[in-house]
Amino acid sequence: MTNTIADIKNPILSIRDLSVAYDKNYAVKNVTLDIKKHAVTAIMGPSGCGKSTMLRALNRMHELYENITTEGQVLLNDVNIFDMPAIKLRRQMGMVFQRPNPFPTMSIYDNVIAGYNLNGIRVKKSQKDEIVERSLQDVALWGEVKDSLLKKGSFLSGGQQQRLCIARALAFNPEVILLDEPTSALDPVATAKIEDLLVKLKENYTIVMVTHNMGQAARISDYSLFLYMGELVEYGKTKNMFTNPKDPRTEQYLTGKFG
């Protein structure tokens, strides 16, 4: 077996023997790896290999569905995420979904601050304004929407909506941001904007993203992992993996032989 931990010192996330099963069918099998703080880690692999399943296990989204079982350990700063309340975990691990999903009944402002409002966390108005501005500036959306903060979020374009959703996740100052193919529903211009954004965001946040697009992984990720049929085939620095894949399956995938 190849070294899947990739010699990362002081990892923010340590995944140990993580398995996820739908009914009795394992979609992710015994994945073990460490994730580096303040870096972009890309999860790659062909359709149905368990990329999203693995990502969604990290903020315990699977608990919504009774037929899904998760085994193993995930340590976030040395605390097992399965031992902490899901609500607390999810506030530390923001998530952005494949399709932009702003809350349709809320304004742009309320969407960004939704984490506070919905959780009943009382914050002064001036502080709220500050959080909204900072989060929207972080996603480079402030300039575009600062005059229409009270309009509904659903009036924005797809790319803007997705950046709004990232801002919503950032508002809580999470440690990790999980992104599930965040650009797959967007056009190339919007995709480029989000990619630039992620590179900028890794200064303050740890980013774990699922991507279907090898080019994207090569452009923006520091570490990549290649999943195949639910198994972790290879994990390491993106540069090394793309120039010198160790496993023949990784090579075949990267050269477009399957996937």
Binding site: N59, M61, L64, A86, I87, K88, L89, R90, R91, G94, M95, F97, R99, N101, F103, P104, T105, A114, G115, N117, L118, N119, G120, C165, R168, A169, F172
Partner: peptide, 26 residues
């Protein structure tokens, strides 16, 4: 859409509030 429910849960919102503050208004 299920994704709306997941979006709210991903913000660490307790389930009953997801229902009352997101699902019902929507």
């Amino acid at each position: 859409p299920q994704t709306l429910k997941e979006a709210a849960l991903a913000l660490g919102v307790p389930y009953h509030k997801v229902l009352l503050r997101v699902m019902i208004p929507t």
